[in-house]
């Protein structure tokens, strides 16, 4: 069972308290009706299938209830970091493997 650090509770807790919520940093366009079909398709459906660092969302469902972002290595299944929604992507080169 993974251990996940909730950036809001500032605690590292078992995976069972959390729910996965898909890829991170996909912003819903401010004016969806101005989007082309291709742009809307991209927003709805097109996702990474990363081997390695993956930016993704989790929700501390059975805790504070907050959504947050994470970088997880899909090969080792280790979290490299977690950070609040709405903050920029962390720089991968500054993340050391195994630190959450």
């Amino acid at each position: 069972m993974l251990l996940i650090h909730c950036p809001h509770c500032e605690e590292t807790l078992p995976e069972a308290e959390f729910a996965y919520a898909g890829q991170a940093h996909i912003v819903r366009p401010a004016d969806p009706m101005s989007q082309t079909d291709e742009q809307w398709e991209e927003f709805l459906f097109i996702r990474e299938n990363a081997k390695g660092a993956h930016y993704e969302r989790w929700r501390h469902l059975h805790g504070c209830g907050r959504f947050f972002n994470a970088v997880r290595d899909t090969v080792s299944d280790r979290f490299l970091t977690t950070y609040p929604s709405g903050t920029p992507r962390p720089d991968l080169s500054t993340l050391t493997e195994g630190k959450a």
Binding site: A19, V27, R28, R57, L61, G65, R66, F67
Partner: peptide
Amino acid sequence: NMMEDYLQTE
């Protein structure tokens, strides 16, 4: 959950 998602993140 869906409402919270839109409210918190969008």
